[in-house]
Design a binder for these strands. Sequence first.
DNA 1: GTAACTGCAAAGAATTTGCAGTCGC
DNA 2: GCGACTGCAAATTCTTTGCAGTTAC
Lengths: 163, 163
Amino acid sequence: MVKVTLDKEAARAVSRIENACLDKGMKMTDQRRIIARVLSESTDHPDVEEVYGRASNIDPHISIATVYRTLRLFDIANIIDRHDFGDGRSRYEVADEVGHHHHLIDMKNGHVLEFENAELENIKKRIAHELGYELVGDRLELYGVPIGASGDDSDPEKKSRTP
Amino acid sequence: MVKVTLDKEAARAVSRIENACLDKGMKMTDQRRIIARVLSESTDHPDVEEVYGRASNIDPHISIATVYRTLRLFDIANIIDRHDFGDGRSRYEVADEVGHHHHLIDMKNGHVLEFENAELENIKKRIAHELGYELVGDRLELYGVPIGASGDDSDPEKKSRTP
DNA sequence: GTAACTGCAAAGAATTTGCAGTCGC
DNA sequence: GCGACTGCAAATTCTTTGCAGTTAC
């Protein structure tokens, strides 16, 4: 049942991306559809290499240059969000349709948690206003260590370097 | 009078950095002293190339590799903060001794404003706790456009690309 | 039909590193 | 004196780009 829900959501995201492309006069090529699907089905925050790998499983002929170009386009079109978690590379995920979430990076094992907080959203807006600005974007990452932990050390999303 | 104050502060920052180096068993070379001075005297957020340029004005023989190495060391030692404002390069500034400030990037002209907000600090900590983490670091940037503006377009700190 | 897109390989930009010589402690 | 540090140039890593052929609309 979970899987069905996921597939449905992913399919919805794919068509959302396809529509966004067509709206902006971009052509919907097989490669873009594949990358859209890969991103829609991802629940983590893959970097370019990782997206390339997953896309290659679907079409082994896809080129990494195309992945770079497509991710850049999707990013500009606000279809996806680009993140920088402190290791050198950019990471991507499908953009929120509503609301806005941020990330907490577990310094112990590299896990990335997502969270959303209305109060936080308000404060950010308020601070910007107080400085005389309209908030048009923002970026927040928290870096933390598990409370009272001495736990495992796996690193499903690699390690970060910025504290 | 302002200038005197600045020089005093810069001198204090330089010796603080020197002490931190010695504390950690790092050698205090001329190059490191120069880079410490450059950073201490900067009120903006220079990138490596810029630090290199300013350091070169003091000692034209300094190498950019040394600047890279030194900035990395200072960063690890928590003497300085590294930032990423969305253009490709890293930017640096002397770390806060107390408190913690963040940045608002003016999307219109690239200006970078600094701000501090106690309420914000609390929320971040609280969110981390709710997720089961002790907050050990964080990063926040706001991107904004001036309210009711159609103003100038200078870019003293270059332009950013992330919204 | 044609402008946009792709793959490939080469170019670019930012940063790191190997090595031989130098210098702080 | 010795290990840490520096300068230099070459190497790495991530990302972009020029070009010739292909494809979506």
